[in-house]
Computed example of a mutant assay.
Amino acid sequence: MPLRPYTFGDPHIDKATSEHIRFPMTDGQQVIAGRLGIDVLRARFAGTDPDPDPDPDPMTLFLHHRRPIEDAASAKFDRAGAPDNVLDLYAEDFDEP
């Protein structure tokens, strides 16, 4: 079952690590915590805008590219699930630009 954005929570920088963006999604029955490293976020999406910022704000970058990030999370969930209700995304979870 595909994941959908969970509307009762907002994406945020992980307070425990300061190195991840956490974003809530749901499969309709439970909330799944998506987690994407800021380094992966920047490597995958920085520079894809027409006027790239050399050091983009991670939250702005996430929000600008939210749809493909959530699509990648949903596809990974369909492949592997999230046994602990946490879904980590890595560079290999994204299609090439």
Rank of each mutant, 00 (worst) to 15 (best):
D51V: 03
R4I: 08
P11Q: 02
A73L: 11
G47M: 07
D49V: 13
N85K: 04
G34D: 14
E70T: 15
M1L: 10
D84V: 05
A72C: 09
F62K: 01
L41R: 04
G47N: 07
R4N: 13
P97T: 02
P24Y: 08
D71A: 15
P52E: 04
R44E: 09
R35G: 03
D71P: 08
G81K: 08
M1K: 07
P2C: 01
I38P: 09
L87K: 01
Q29Y: 12
T60W: 14
P24Q: 08
D78W: 07
R66K: 15
S18C: 01
P54R: 08
I69H: 10
D10F: 12
D84G: 01
L87Q: 01
A80E: 14
T26I: 13
A33T: 08
P2V: 02
G9Q: 03
T48C: 03
H64Q: 15
E92D: 10
A73S: 13
D53P: 00
T48S: 06
D49S: 15
P54G: 12
M25C: 14
E92M: 01
L61F: 04
L61T: 02
D95C: 01
A73K: 15
Y90P: 00
E96D: 07
M59H: 02
L3W: 04
V40N: 07
P5L: 03
P97F: 03
H65Q: 14
I69F: 09
A75S: 13
R4H: 14
L63C: 04
L63Y: 07
L63Q: 09
K76T: 05
D93V: 02
G37Y: 15
A46G: 08
P5D: 04
D84K: 08
A72S: 11
D55H: 13
L63S: 05
D88T: 05
D95S: 10
A73C: 12
E96I: 11
I21A: 05
T17R: 13
T60F: 15
R42V: 12
D10R: 10
A33D: 09
A46Q: 13
E96Q: 14
D39W: 00
S18M: 00
F45V: 12
D39N: 00
L36P: 09
D84P: 00
P83A: 09
M59G: 05
A91V: 10
D78S: 12
L36C: 08
D93L: 01
D10W: 13
G81V: 13
Q30M: 07
D71Y: 14
R35A: 06
F45N: 08
